[in-house]
Design a protein around this nucleic acid. Structure first.
Lengths: 215, 215
DNA sequence: GACTTATATAGACGATCGGTCTATAAATGC
DNA sequence: GCATTTATAGACCGATCGTCTATATAAGTC
């Protein structure tokens, strides 16, 4: 994700795009990227299609060429966000230059820096959607649960590594701790967004590491 | 808050209410109570006035007699929720039959039972509004921050008691721990609502107590 | 007890906005 | 050249918020 969207300069032509051109993916991905921005900032319901379309410079009719409806769009954005996030997570958690626990800290630092960079306007898309749809919406519910499961797995694995390596006590329940991590993390992101500072995220991270049973 | 709303039986009469009657508070409070229900379940934006009015059996014209607009209504609902919640909190945290730490556990048990009773459909109104308005809305932002501050204070005081009493180590930073508590708690409520079970809330509570530096 | 004022309900109405649908334009392919 | 594919263009419909006027009932006034 780049700093700001430089999507406007694209003067879309009306008909079928020329062969070599990547017209389709171009527009579609611009919509998804913009969706990630706005949904992360404002949530799903609160973000109108018009706002997205205006920002990307795409007329309404185009939108429904690329997506079935707003819901389907949201699902794709969520999927993309999830992919992006897992990629980020794995980048840190598989960094062999660091000890397993330091890798988690490295991810946290990155996340804090990112949130800071966006002036605490962006929260977590998964958290947003979870709160907006929560139970009520089975379609999203299952996907959201699956995403959290993926995230949890990654942290749990990393904690297992720490255990094997000896920096985490053998009696530690890595699954539980990983669950705990994401539960608290979501709360921390929400608080940071509300208070417009990184204090909550830092505080949670600090306490989380304090909680880990060391050898 | 009662289990279900028994608001419908009230057959509102049209004109000025009789002197002794509490017509005003009656309708107004029914609206607020219903607002607490629905905003806690669905969030602010997602809940239409019409839905509230239909459920309480009040026509639109009445609503704008009691409240300036939807936003002002939301603010009043938030204020009421906050009051209700602080009352609940204080009930537990000032229970002299229990040790300070047991009082916090007592509050947690109550909250879990409550969420369970509502079949995990209700989240935390403050969390909902924080995520919906977050930064973007100064009016709510300040109120939400104030509410969290109040909640934090109560827990911090209780932890101080525990420290004085000797069940909490003297080096414990009660403010930090109280902050941490609410950060994680919000995340736990969100997760419980998403997964439709109390696991997240229980897990967070368990780990929180494990984290406290004991003597 | 008639007239005015205060309190509240009743619901039609308009402006706005989100989401859907049909029409149009441009390039391709046979 | 004509059908097909791919994308844009924007009209349209319905829902929602908030306002407005009308109505009903009680209270106050003399």
């Amino acid at each position: 994700m780049s700093k700001t969207n430089q999507d406007l300069p694209v003067p879309r032509k009306r008909g079928r795009p020329p062969k070599g051109g990547l017209g389709y993916e171009n527009t579609r991905e611009a919509l998804i990227r913009c969706g990630m921005e706005l949904l992360t900032e404002q949530g799903f319901i609160n973000t109108g299609l018009d706002q997205i379309l205006k920002k990307v410079g795409v007329p309404k009719g185009s939108f429904y060429h690329y997506f079935q409806n707003k819901e389907a769009f949201g699902y794709v954005v969520l999927e993309n966000y999830s992919q992006y996030f897992i990629h980020k997570l794995e980048k840190h958690l598989s960094n062999n230059d660091l000890t397993p626990l330091a890798r988690i800290q490295s991810f946290i630092d990155d996340a804090i820096q990112s949130v800071e960079h966006f002036e605490f306007k962006r929260g977590c898309l998964v958290g947003n959607l979870a709160q907006e749809f929560g139970c009520s919406h089975d379609f999203f519910k299952e996907k959201l649960e699956a995403v959290f499961k993926e995230w949890k797995l990654r942290i749990a694995d990393c904690l297992e590594l720490a255990k094997a390596e000896g920096s985490l006590a053998p009696e530690a329940d890595c699954e539980k701790l990983a669950d705990f991590f994401w539960i608290g993390w979501e709360g921390a992101v929400m608080h940071s967004k509300l208070h417009q500072n990184k204090q909550a995220m830092e505080l949670f991270a600090e306490q989380f590491f304090k909680l880990l049973p060391k050898t």
